[in-house]
């Protein structure tokens, strides 16, 4: 999923303080799972903002709504009839949702309420870690299902750099050495011979380096 983190309340207040009618728009997907932008967080943020404006002696209307997704036209249509009632929408979706909402409603400022961080997984309650950088050319088949692009600090594709110690990365004792994990996993799978195969120099044109990307699927297009 896309993992996001809450923006500091001071930053959010700075971005919305001039508006009198604000809709806080949550998203039921990834940001709900990572507890940054779902219905619950929309409610908490709305309460915080109401308290702030009350203390300031300002009369600001703050409404709450959470859509199934903000990255799909059909769900974004649900707010079409109410958008004009607001001077701004504070979206707690990931950067995709914020932009898609903005593309749909040109005349309303759409502001981000979370920082979109990475593609990751919930390791435990309150801990999300990165697993994928969407490089567009997956090599997990050769690396025991562990991604060196997202998990090795140097994105090395052919073994460790030599800087790891006791299975941890040289950048931090809290970060696993991705290549230690890969070798351990290949051993467990009885596929250590995969490690001997030299991976070719990576084609980064499928990564963000090749400019904004898109996927075209004629087989599913209407």
């Amino acid at each position: 999923m896309i993992v996001a983190d809450k923006k500091p309340i001071e930053e959010i207040i700075e971005s919305v303080k001039e508006f009198k009618k604000i809709l806080i728009l949550g998203c039921n997907e990834c940001v709900t799972v990572c507890e940054a932008g779902g219905k619950k967080e929309v409610g908490i943020l709305a309460s915080a903002l109401r308290m702030f404006f009350l203390n300031q002696g300002k009369d600001v209307k703050i409404d709450e709504q959470t859509l199934e997704r903000q990255c799909d036209h059909e769900y974004l249509e649900e707010i079409r009839d109410v958008v004009d009632q607001y001077e701004a929408i504070l979206s707690l979706a990931c950067g995709v949702g914020v932009q898609f909402t903005a593309e749909k409603y040109h005349s309303t400022p759409i502001l981000p309420g979370v920082n979109t961080c990475f593609l990751g997984a919930t390791e435990q309650r309150g801990l999300w870690t990165e697993r994928c950088q969407a490089c567009g050319s997956c090599i997990l088949a050769f690396t025991g299902g562990i991604c060196p692009v997202s998990r090795c600090a140097k994105r090395l594709l052919n073994g460790p750099c030599g800087g790891s110690s006791k299975g941890k990365c040289e950048i931090s004792k809290d970060v696993d050495c991705a290549w230690q994990l890969i070798i351990d996993r290949l051993k467990a799978l009885g596929k250590l011979d995969e490690y001997e195969k030299v991976q070719p120099i990576k084609n980064w044109s499928t990564d963000r380096a090749g400019g904004p990307r898109r996927v075209v699927r004629e087989d599913v297009a209407l």
Binding site: K202, W204, S205, D207, A209, G210
Partner: peptide
């Protein structure tokens, strides 16, 4: 210019 214009299309800018 973006690497896509040159002779190393797979390079990371």
């Amino acid at each position: 210019e973006d690497p896509g214009f040159g002779d190393h299309h797979q390079a990371k800018a």
